[in-house]
Design a protein around this nucleic acid. Sequence first.
DNA 1: AACTATACCGGTATTAGTATCACGGTCATG
DNA 2: CATGACCGTGATACTAATACCGGTATAGTT
Lengths: 93, 93
Amino acid sequence: MVRVPLTPEERQRGERFGALLRQARGERSMVEVAAAAGVSAETLRKIETGRAPTPAFFTVAALAAALGLSLDELAVACADASGRDGSEFRRAG
Amino acid sequence: MVRVPLTPEERQRGERFGALLRQARGERSMVEVAAAAGVSAETLRKIETGRAPTPAFFTVAALAAALGLSLDELAVACADASGRDGSEFRRAG
DNA sequence: AACTATACCGGTATTAGTATCACGGTCATG
DNA sequence: CATGACCGTGATACTAATACCGGTATAGTT
């Protein structure tokens, strides 16, 4: 087993993540936001619909910047939205 | 061409990103931090050495949480370290 | 020298992210 | 209805991330 498939929880987390991005996009079109972030509209669509549940960090960073979102708040919002134990996101100190 | 390879600038950004993580890790071992973040030590090593220049968002989030780093500061630190125009990171509002 | 722990490296296997192409739906125009 | 522009979507192509294995090098201990 060299690369475990994404767990259902990770898929669900991706769906929540996409929902947050879509909510933050509001009335703006996909092409508008995608162009502002420097990614293709299809990529944004896949992330928003949860078909790309674990997008690249800098892709998310560019989208968050285009949408005016905080990466930290985005991360905790995905983990906090459901009944997760949150252990993977607890601070080190 | 369906997926453009990573540009040299993206590779260099990945190296800066890995250097930041390694600096934040300090005296702690790779296995220690990797276990705390829930990723394999090889993955952490590849990210730190720049061999995985564009890691997944939640991988970075878990590592940042284990290291006590801010994702926003991490993103701007990578983009700010070199002579980039920074247009892909300008705030929307 | 042998043992242990840490980190680096190459190879390998498999899933997943990203971009291009082609299609359907909606709205405005004629 | 026909055409065009914009939006969202599905299929497809290709690269990259992640993880496992074995080997190598350094440093500390005995």
